[in-house]
Design a protein around this nucleic acid. Structure first.
Lengths: 205, 205
DNA sequence: GCACGATGTCAACAGACGTTGGCCAACAGC
DNA sequence: GCTGTTGGCCAACGTCTGTTGACATCGTGC
C-alpha cells in the first residue's frame, strides 16, 4: 500500500546533496505527468489508460502506479491549472472583456491539445473530481479577478455567467468544433464576443 | 451477425394484423431506449454499460445487443434531439434573446437528467459521433432559426457564438454546477444573459 | 569488495466490459 | 398433433482494464 504518492522521497536520503539535486526519478515523474496531461486532455479521464500513458513515457505501466499510487491520484496530480489571468485592474474597465477573450484565445490557439483548462473541461463533464476542480478554479482564479473590476456583489451575480460564455467558447470551438465557430478568426471572435461579455458584466451602455 | 438493428421486424409477419398492432418487442425496445437515454445523459457514453442499461430495463444484457446490434448503434438510436425551438419570426427581434434563454431554461429546469441536449453535450466532449450529432443539431435546428431573424450572412458569423453562450449556460449550470450560476433564479439568468445574446446577435444599441 | 536503497522490468491477477451462441418457453399456422 | 417464428435467459468467450508482487539492475556509501 502506498498511502502517499511519493514513497521514494521518504527514508534515508544522502544528506550532503544540494537541495536542488535532481534525482533520476524526478525526470521519470515529470515524463509521466507530461504524458498523462496529454492523454487526459485529448480523451478525458475515462478513455485514457495507464498503459497508454506509460507507453508514451517509455516506461512500464506498473511504474505509473508506483509513482502515483492510483489512476485517480495521477489525475489529481495532473490537474494543476493556472489560468495566468492578467491583472484586470490595470486595464480600463471597458477593455476588460476584450482582454479576457483575447487572453483565452491566445492560450488555446497555439496547441489546444496541451491546455490544462481544456483538460479539466473535457473530464469535468463526466467526472465529479474534475468538476470540483473546475469549480475551484472558478472560485479561486476567475471570480476574484472579476470582483476586482465590478465589485464583489455584482461579481456574485455576473461572474458565473461570464465564465459560462468563455467556457462556451472553448466548448464549441475546440471540443465540439462547431464549424461556424471554428471558421471565425480570433479577431472576429473578440469583436463579436467582447460586447456580449461587456453586457454580462454590466458595463454596457 | 445482425446487419440491421431490427431483424425481428423482417421476415414473415401475420398479415391480418392491424398496422398499428403492438408487438411485445416494441415495449421492450422502448424500455431499453428509455433506460439507455437515462444512463447516457447521466454519465456519458463511456461510463454507461450495457449491463446497467439492461438491469434498468429488466432484461438480459444480450437482449440489448439483439435489439440494437452494438453499443454504438444503441447510442445512435438514443440520440434523437428535438430542441422544439419556437418560431422566432413570430416574436419581435428584440425579444428573441430572452425567448431563447427562457426556452432552454424551461427545458432544463424540470428534469436535467432527462434532456436529450444534455445527453449529447455530456458525450460529445469525448465522443466523436456525439460531437458530430451536436454539429448536426446546430446546423439543422439552431442556425436556420437564427438566420430567419438576423439573415443568413449575419447568422454565419454570429449564430455559432450564440450557441456557445447557450451551451455555456448548460455546461456551467447543469454539468459543472458552478455555484455562482446554479444560485441564480431563471429570471436572473434571463435578465443577465439576454442582453449579452442581443449583442452577439448584433441587435444591440 | 559488500550492502542497500532507488529504479525499473516482467508476468500475472481479478474484475469489468462488449459480445456471442446455444437453449428454452410461449404462441400461431398448418 | 407438429413446425416455425418470436422473445427471452443463461453461460461463456476474448479482451482490456487498474493493480500487485516478485525479481533484476543501477548507483552510491561503507
Amino acid at each position: 500500500m502506498w498511502a502517499n504518492g511519493c514513497w521514494h522521497k521518504l527514508g534515508a536520503m544522502p544528506e550532503h546533496r544540494e537541495p536542488a539535486a535532481e534525482r533520476r526519478s524526478d525526470r521519470t515523474r515529470a515524463a509521466i505527468l507530461r504524458a498523462a496531461r496529454q492523454h487526459f486532455t485529448a480523451q478525458g479521464y475515462e478513455r485514457t489508460t495507464i498503459r497508454a500513458i506509460a507507453a508514451d513515457a517509455d516506461i512500464d505501466p506498473s511504474m505509473v502506479i508506483r509513482y502515483f499510487g492510483t489512476k485517480e491520484r495521477l489525475f489529481d496530480a495532473a490537474l494543476t491549472v493556472d489560468l495566468r489571468l492578467p491583472d484586470l485592474t490595470a486595464v480600463a474597465p471597458g477593455d476588460v472583456p476584450a482582454v479576457l477573450v483575447r487572453h483565452f484565445l491566445n492560450r488555446w490557439e497555439g496547441d489546444p491539445t496541451d491546455d490544462a483548462l481544456l483538460m479539466v473541461l473535457r473530464s469535468a463533464v463526466t467526472n465529479d473530481r474534475a468538476a470540483e476542480r473546475a469549480r475551484e478554479i472558478f472560485g479561486v482564479q476567475v471570480a476574484p479577478a472579476l470582483a476586482a473590476v465590478i465589485g464583489p456583489e455584482a461579481a456574485g451575480r455576473r461572474a458565473g455567467l461570464v465564465s459560462a460564455q468563455l467556457l462556451g467558447l472553448a466548448l464549441t470551438r475546440y471540443l465540439l468544433r462547431l464549424p461556424t465557430v471554428t471558421a471565425l478568426t480570433p479577431d472576429e471572435v473578440v469583436a463579436t464576443l467582447a460586447p456580449a461579455i461587456r453586457e454580462t458584466l454590466g458595463l454596457g451602455g
